[in-house]
Amino acid sequence: MTRDALARSRDFDRRGAAWYMDRAVTLFVFVGGISAILFIVGIFAFIAREGFGFVFTEFDAGEFFGSIAWRPTSMIERTYGALALIVGTASITGLAMVVSIPFSLAAAVFIGEFARGRTRETLKVLVELLAAIPSVVWGFIGLSIMNPLIIDTFGVPIGLNVLNAGVILGLMAAPIMTTIAEDALKAVPDGYREAAEALGATRWQVIRKVVIPAARNGLVAAVLLGVGRGFGETMVVLMASGHAINLPDSVFDSVRALTATIAAELGETAVGSEHYQALFTLGILLFAVTFAINLTADVIVRGIRRKGR
């Protein structure tokens, strides 16, 4: 008997259902994993194709970054100055971070280091539930609760402004930041805490001198993810910011954000028109900035990891 025949006679080449299952699952998870790359490339290609027509013809960098005149539908002279939109997004995101960073880091430290047993589990579930509230609901809160509250409290004529959108956005970003920051704290080996406590450190000293430094990577990631979230958020800033093209002098001024502009105007434009392409150019800008934030986060985190370990 030849070796082949021997093998066949003993069924060594038989492929059972498990073999096919294994192949199918391998293929499926491969597609799932690789799809992230396809999507990111595809989205970028799409935005670029729609926007680059404008970028290479009408685009005037001086006007785009230097002027606040966003008049895409003007009959006399159409201008595309995005400065006010950029400042609007930046001011709202900035205020949101001022609100959410201390708030969510404190929440993460409480849940991770102080709360025990049932309190801790309940809080974690609630925070995750908060993270799942749709942004349009936050927008409602901005419109119908924060708006009159700001008018009454500060005596200003309008409550839809940087303060309103920033606070709402901050509250909205906080649960996600809290969850990620708490995961980072939880990943700190308990042996560190025990060692520091046995040396006589109080709970606060343990947190400040050992746990937070050890969790630094994850905390930086949490904050940057929050920034990215704030930057790209649309519905809240559309509903709560006042949506007025304006360079704000104070937090009580209304502004308009990049994302809100795209959301509000894209449906009204003719596909392929100058205005349509200009909105996609805003999209390219958003994409580039978010990409830069994430890349920075990655570089920082890696850098820290290599150095501090």
Partner: peptide
Amino acid sequence: FQRPNPLPL
């Protein structure tokens, strides 16, 4: 402790 647990410093 049983396992050496130097602080991350």
